[in-house]
């Protein structure tokens, strides 16, 4: 936001352009371990991602950490080993082996292939807070005109912290599309799904957090998502309301301020963001990331989109392709697809 007010002044001084790209050099760099994982009271599998960090201005894939020994420890209970399902991606094998229990604390233990050990500070799964109602507002000027917000009664005791996320599911019948352009023309090859399949869409990069510091015991009404208007059909969303620890909240709050920093003079001084992972082998080693334990409420919502008279805004259709349906079906797999029927989905 701070950048914006500067921009206002900049623009008001009749400038053509106030922002341009510059080249900067980066010296001495040391790669650090990144841990990204979570457990909750919702059923698993729970996933932990291990990577090594990249220099800030460099493009490229973060280097995955393969062959590590990863386990989740329930304090005063079982220790469950995770399986490397794909390089650098570790998962609990079966949702029945381990399910997060409200009131219990969990931490992560890692031993990398080179023998270095790491651990996370334990986090307790806090009681989830129910979502009361939701509200949809139509804002015709926005590209995504539907604004979805929820209403939650904050518990009477002080010190509740929240994180909100959402997932949009839609049933799909095409599991693969490939486009070809050649002299014969433009072709779109489509393959049907072999099973029932849902596409998943979410907001990556959104940090929606809240604290009851100022509204303790009253209603909290966060805006959750902005939704498109490509059809009048209801839009299916599962809203996740996580009850999170103070440490987790502070971590994300710092992240949120720092990624919005514009380097300007009203920025908060940037600082190292401490996650909850530390080195056991070398306590002075800087480890990045977070392993969280949260109590989550999932609320499936069919967001109505037929209460306005404005015309729908279908997505721009690409130039004409000749569609060819391929005979072989494709499995419902990948980051943005699932064959598991989402909670609250009505056929």
């Amino acid at each position: 936001m701070e950048k914006n007010w500067v921009l206002y002044i900049c623009l008001s001084l009749f400038t053509t352009s106030c922002i341009d790209e510059v080249k900067l050099n980066q010296e001495d760099f040391q790669s650090k371990l990144i841990v990204d994982g979570s457990i909750s009271n919702a059923s698993g599998p729970y996933r932990v991602l291990l990577n090594y960090s990249l220099p800030y201005t460099e493009a490229g894939l973060t280097q995955t950490v393969s062959g590590a020994n990863v386990s989740i420890v329930e304090e005063g209970g079982q220790t469950v080993n995770l399986i490397e399902v794909s390089t650098g991606i570790y998962e609990t094998a079966d949702s029945f082996v381990l399910k997060g229990q409200i009131g219990k604390s969990y931490y992560l233990k890692i031993r990398t292939a080179n023998g270095r050990e790491y651990q996370s500070r334990p986090e307790k799964i806090l009681p989830p807070v129910p979502i009361d109602t939701f509200k949809v507002a139509f804002q015709p000027k926005q590209a995504k005109p539907f604004e979805l917000s929820i209403k939650t009664k904050d518990p009477v005791e002080k010190g509740n912290f929240y994180r909100w996320k959402w997932m949009h599911y839609d049933s799909i019948s095409i599991c693969k599309t490939s486009l070809t352009k050649n002299e014969a023309g433009n072709f779109s090859y489509k393959s049907f799904c072999c099973e029932k399949c849902w596409s998943i869409e979410t907001c990556s990069g959104c940090i929606d957090i809240g604290s009851d510091a100022l509204i303790n015991g009253k209603y909290i009404e966060p805006t959750i998502a902005r939704l498109p208007y490509e059809s009048k059909r209801p839009y299916f969303v599962i809203v996740e309301q996580h009850s999170v620890s103070k440490e987790y909240y502070q971590f994300w709050q710092l992240v949120s301020t720092q990624i919005n920093n514009s380097g300007g003079i009203f920025d908060n001084a940037p600082a190292q963001i401490q996650g909850n992972i530390f080195g056991v082998t070398d306590p002075n080693e800087q480890v990045l990331g977070y392993f969280s334990a949260t109590g989550v409420t999932l609320k499936p919502i069919y967001v109505p989109r037929d209460f306005t008279n404005y015309a729908i805004r279908p997505p721009a259709t690409p130039s004409s392709f000749e569609v060819i349906y391929l005979p072989n079906c494709q499995p419902c797999r990948g980051i943005s697809k699932t064959p598991i029927k989402p909670l609250g989905w009505i056929e």
């Binding site: 900067l24 980066q26 760099f29 790669s31 650090k32 990144i34 990204d36 979570s38 990577n51 960090s53 990249l54 220099p55 800030y56 973060t62 979410t202 990556s204 990069g205 959104c206 940090i207 992240v255 720092q258 990624i259 001084a269 940037p270 600082a271 190292q272 963001i273 996650g275 800087q286 990045l288 990331g289 977070y290």
Partner: peptide, 20 residues
């Protein structure tokens, strides 16, 4: 202060600062 590293947690891009 410029960031040294970048990393992702829960799909969010995070800069890491070490020297003020």
């Amino acid at each position: 202060t410029y960031a040294d590293d970048k990393y992702y947690v829960e799909n969010v891009f995070i800069p890491n600062y070490t020297n003020r």
